[in-house]
């Protein structure tokens, strides 16, 4: 989370390029949307099941990150012309993932349910919304967004296998579970890189965080993303700096 926010902030300052990050999690972790309240039942569940917890800078619902490929893409709206409505960026990003899965011969469709902003599911993977990705009618990929002026951060999860409490996955499934076969991680990483670059028309250059991104990420990790005040109450003094 800290790295994503660091790149977002640096990108707005013009100090970082548009960036695609593909990553996984060291331990099963629940992430909360920016405005979500963690209720007593979820807090208890996290404790019982030894799930880590972090609040995202993006919107949307709870996500249990475990056996998935997590992606975040940070880009300028200027990269994509013409400018689009917020919901249209979901379609663009979903299409990147859809085409990556097509490269691996996985039949995946975009959910068409009309998006109702007031009908925001508590649990992200319990309710497919428009432009989520479906395999055999089950949601396998969802994403959420932060808009920082002209710069957009889109964070998404491509589920490979569901795990933990089934309550997290009422209308979802992992791609590998639906296909009954294991997907090669290097192949899917490569397919995602290619599709994002082609769809967004951005020439991503492989590499790690810049020194400035790393320094800012370290500060945000210490001051924000490891703090109870942010993760449980959504309070961070420097949020709007």
């Amino acid at each position: 989370m800290a790295s994503d926010e660091a790149i977002l902030r640096q990108r707005r300052m013009g100090a970082s390029p548009s960036t695609l990050r593909l990553y996984s999690w060291l331990k099963p972790t629940v992430s909360l949307g920016y405005f979500q309240h963690i209720g007593v039942p979820l807090a208890a569940l996290c404790r019982q099941q030894h799930l880590a917890l972090v609040r995202r800078p993006t919107g949307g619902g709870f996500v249990l990150h475990d056996q998935e490929i997590t992606f975040s893409v940070i880009f300028s709206r200027q990269d994509l012309r013409p400018q689009r409505q917020t919901v249209e960026y979901y379609r663009v990003i979903a299409t990147c993932v859809q085409k990556a899965l097509w490269r691996l011969n996985i039949a995946v469709t975009l959910a068409e349910k009309v998006f109702d902003g007031r009908d925001n599911s508590f649990l992200c993977f319990n309710k497919p919304t428009k432009y989520d990705l479906l395999v055999a009618g089950k949601k396998v990929c969802g994403s959420a967004q932060r808009r920082y002026g002209e710069i957009i951060l889109q964070q998404g999860s491509l589920i490979l296998r569901t795990s933990g409490d089934p309550g997290f996955w009422r209308q979802a499934a992992g791609v590998e579970e639906v296909l009954c076969e294991k997907i090669s991680r290097p192949e899917i990483y490569q397919a995602l890189q290619t599709s994002f670059a082609e769809e967004l028309r951005i020439a991503f250059v492989p590499g790690g965080l810049t020194a400035a991104e790393r320094a800012l990420a370290r500060r945000l990790t210490t001051e924000k993303y490891t703090q109870v005040s942010w993760n449980y109450q959504g309070q961070y003094q420097g949020e709007h700096d």
């Binding site: 949307g33 920016y34 919107g59 960026y89 902003g117």
Partner: peptide, 17 residues
């Protein structure tokens, strides 16, 4: 040009400047 708050819509959090 400082962010003074945020608004959430369609799973998107947007900074207000």
């Amino acid at each position: 040009q400082e962010s003074f708050g945020v608004a959430e819509s369609v799973k998107a959090v947007s900074d207000l400047f």
